[in-house]
């Protein structure tokens, strides 16, 4: 039982990650792939933040009357990772827009067909 409660967060997070990962590799639509990457990355953020939590702790902003704080380091890492995620999303979507203009489609299978016949 304690394993269940102690790992509930992590297990759900893994399911979330795999949802995103599946979307990336299984879906032919390029926008959907980017959305999948977004879900994948966001779920990894939750993994990091979960490990930073201390039972009974509070946000790591020092104030009178509190002595137990959650771990600030994963928060810092994830702030950076969120920015990296935004950069990737923006570039990916920009590529999607250009691909749409060049091929007239955002479906991976259709693009392959067009490339083959070239």
């Amino acid at each position: 039982m304690s394993t269940l409660l102690g790992h509930y967060n992590y297990w759900i997070v893994i399911v979330l990650m795999m949802t995103g990962f599946y979307t990336v590799i299984a879906r032919p639509n390029l926008v959907k792939k980017i959305i999948g990457l977004f879900i994948f990355q966001t779920s990894v953020f939750i993994l990091f933040i979960s490990m930073a939590k201390v039972e009974g702790g509070t946000a790591p902003i020092i104030e009178e009357g509190y002595s137990l704080y959650s771990n600030p380091l994963p928060h810092v890492l994830i702030l950076t990772a969120i920015v990296v995620g935004l950069a990737t999303t923006a570039l990916g979507l920009a590529l999607v827009v250009r691909i749409q203009e060049a091929y007239g489609t955002t479906n991976e299978d259709d693009i392959h067909v067009q490339d083959e016949t070239d």
Binding site: T42, I49, T58, Y69, I78
Partner: peptide, 18 residues
């Protein structure tokens, strides 16, 4: 969830970005 997990800075960023 980040607010619940005490990561207030991250919560702020995730909402604004995501």
């Amino acid at each position: 969830l980040f607010v619940v997990l005490d990561a207030v800075d991250v919560a702020l960023t995730e909402a604004a970005i995501g």
